[in-house]
Amino acid sequence: MSITPEEVLRVAELAYLELSEEELHTYRRQLDGILAYIDKLREIDVSAVEPMAQILSAASPDESDSLRDDIVRPDSSGPKILQQAPEGLPPWFRVPRVISR
């Protein structure tokens, strides 16, 4: 199965990546090679295997569902966090216009 230029463009859109023509071309070729290699996963019969999303339940079954209580605590990091914004407008983050009227 070969990945088409249209599919590469679709994936770049899904991933919100602006790519140059050259990048699209290079990634198409490289993804093709990588996916051809990954196709070896089809050699194995996995019909009777449960998927493993994470190892915690296998490693320590008692704790796999331990969640802390949801307690409201005071937090003063808000201003520090907003300072990191490329375009801060405390107490908001500013972005380009989303709705046109």
Binding site: Y16, L17, Q84, A85, P96
Partner: peptide, 17 residues
């Protein structure tokens, strides 16, 4: 939006990309 680099653009979607 919240931290790191931002490349200016006219729409939100273009800014992300």
């Amino acid at each position: 939006v919240r931290y790191g680099l931002r490349e200016p653009a006219n729409s939100l979607r273009e800014m992300y990309k």
